[in-house]
């Protein structure tokens, strides 16, 4: 299945996935780590260990940090 992956503020990727591909796999294909981003389908976050079942996905880089180490 072909999937369009929009990385907000970056490029759009056209990827081909199989039935076992997860959203975390898609994230890694775009060069990001699943810990650095959230994956949204139609504006709603999806579990990254879930298999890809749609043809359009949005990847949003998380904005986080803090004044001190936890």
């Amino acid at each position: 299945m072909d999937v369009t992956v929009d990385v907000v503020g970056e490029d759009t990727h056209e990827l081909t996935v199989d039935a076992e591909t997860t959203y975390a796999d898609l994230v890694r294909e775009t060069g990001w780590s699943p810990q650095e981003v959230t994956v949204l389908v139609d504006g709603t976050p999806v579990p990254e260990d879930q298999r890809v079942t749609v043809d359009h996905v949005t990847i949003l880089r998380l904005i986080k940090g803090g004044s001190q180490r936890a």
């Binding site: 949204l40 504006g43 949005t58 949003l60 986080k64 803090g66 936890a70």
Partner: peptide
């Protein structure tokens, strides 16, 4: 939405996307 908001921050993703 950070677990320790006194020392950490994390923009809530859906709101972040809507804002952008």
């Amino acid at each position: 939405t950070a677990a320790e908001p006194r020392i950490r921050y994390e923009l809530e993703p859906q709101a972040q996307l809507r804002a952008i």
